[in-house]
């Protein structure tokens, strides 16, 4: 499902000062990552702030290209796919962003409906799935609310609903419980584990050790961009 082989990620200094002098990468974010997650697997992704968790997730949801190494998703080498195939691969990935990334001009309903509409599902199916999921995350009364009318926790629940509504093959979550109270966090983990039992591969980045303790699973731990623990 997910395979990283000697993957490195570096950001070159660009912009007004141009690319890195002599063409070398300016900042190495991730170093020589090697791991594999089988279909239906679950991994916690941990590490201190700045360890590279978000960058690793970005590589997984195709928001970044690796500077070196090879990444395979769904048995596809992502370095060899065209733009269209990349987009189609992204549709199989659900992402809960740390900053929610909701569309401010759309209602909660329309935000959650986006992945289904992009997949050209019928509006009947969209309505059924979106209303059910928003009810499940406790937002059945806020369908028409725009993100700026929702609290941080409510926005996070909308973001979670959007990530899972299309029943993705791979679910990536970056600190998904950061703005939730314990009860909501527990409900979220129930949802995620339910999806995982339905063979969705899950990677959850978190600092929350209590959460990890309550839901034991293999851990990918990063430190300064290197994988120091896998298992």
């Amino acid at each position: 499902m997910v395979r990283f082989e000697s993957v490195g990620l570096a950001y070159r200094h660009t912009g007004r000062h141009g690319a890195g002098r002599d063409g070398t990468p300016s900042t190495q974010i991730l170093h020589d990552l090697n791991f594999e997650i089988a279909a239906g697997g679950f991994r916690w992704l941990t590490g201190a702030s700045g360890a590279g968790k978000t960058s690793l997730l970005k590589l997984m949801y195709l928001a970044e290209h690796p500077s070196r190494g090879r990444i395979s998703l769904f048995q596809t080498d992502i370095s060899r796919v065209d733009r269209r195939t990349s987009s189609l691969l992204r549709r199989r990935i659900g992402v809960v962003y740390q900053d929610f990334r909701l569309l401010p001009h759309l209602s909660a309903y329309d935000n959650v409906a986006l992945p289904l509409r992009l997949a050209r599902k019928t509006e009947i199916r969209v309505r059924a799935d979106v209303t059910e999921l928003l009810r499940w995350v406790g937002l059945s009364g806020r369908l028409d609310s725009r993100p700026d009318e929702l609290s941080g926790g409510e926005q996070q629940r909308v973001a979670i609903a959007r990530a899972v509504v299309a029943r993705p093959a791979l679910l990536l979550a970056d600190e998904p419980t950061g703005n939730l109270d314990d009860d909501q966090a527990q409900r979220l983990m129930l949802l995620i584990t339910a999806l995982n039992r339905l063979n969705t591969t899950v990677v959850v980045a978190t600092h929350n050790t209590a959460l990890i303790a309550r839901h034991p699973a293999p851990v990918l731990e990063l430190s300064a961009g290197r994988l120091i623990r896998h298992g």
């Binding site: 987009s87 549709r91 569309l103 001009h105 992009l118």
Partner: peptide, 15 residues
Amino acid sequence: RRDSIEIIHGLGALD
């Protein structure tokens, strides 16, 4: 709509 387009693109929208 720059941010929104990036989000929609990230959700798998084709060009």
